[in-house]
């Protein structure tokens, strides 16, 4: 199978002509062609396949990774335009243990294809829990912030509830707290 080029063998064919840039991915320095979409660098070159590609156009959030701590669509981010260290779910999973457990308990994933992107985004929100909790409509705020992550299975109900629960627990510094999946509909409308 020497004819096959895949994963770690070589980057894209013609990409060799473009200059290489250095990225820091999950704490490790790697080189990638500047024009190559970050999602392909992660998946094909580094075998970091937690990051999914469902549209390739920056429209669905399955490819969400953190760049300098900010959720970013890796499928439309050229490696040359990455402005900071990259974190993928592989590196965030331990930090996100409470989120992952809450997702599992609440039914916040079904097929699981969008889940890495959801968890990466939620991890970024959880780091800012103090700032987010305390507003008058946490579920509404979470829904607005998570609206770049499409899920076709769950109807977002359990995802929202899980993220809210973890944010509240983190903000309280406690291990348990009230769940807040159901907004008061009258409030939500106003």
């Amino acid at each position: 199978m020497s004819a096959l080029r895949r994963r770690t063998d070589a980057p894209a064919t013609a990409a060799a002509a473009t200059p290489l840039v250095t990225l820091v991915v999950n704490g490790r320095s790697v080189e990638a062609p500047a024009s190559r979409p970050l999602a392909r660098v992660l998946r094909d070159d580094l075998d970091l396949t937690a990051t999914k590609v469902a549209c390739g156009r920056g429209e669905c959030g399955a490819c969400t990774v953190l760049v300098d701590g900010r959720p970013t669509m890796s499928c439309v981010t050229a490696a040359g335009l990455v402005r900071g260290p990259v974190e993928t779910l592989e590196a965030l999973a331990d930090e996100a243990t409470d989120l992952r457990e809450e997702f599992a308990d609440a039914g916040a994933f079904q097929c699981g294809f969008c889940t890495p992107g959801q968890l990466v985004h939620a991890t970024a929100l959880a780091r800012r829990a103090d700032e987010l909790v305390g507003g008058d409509d946490l579920p509404g705020a979470v829904r607005a912030r998570m609206s770049g992550n499409i899920c076709r299975c769950t109807g977002y109900q359990a995802i929202t509830a899980s993220v809210c629960a973890v944010l509240e627990r983190r903000a309280a510094g406690a291990t348990s707290g009230p769940s807040c999946g159901h907004a008061d509909p009258e409030e939500a409308a106003s």
Partner: peptide
Amino acid sequence: MPRSADLPSI
């Protein structure tokens, strides 16, 4: 298709 903020609490 609906995004999170488009849906009510079901």
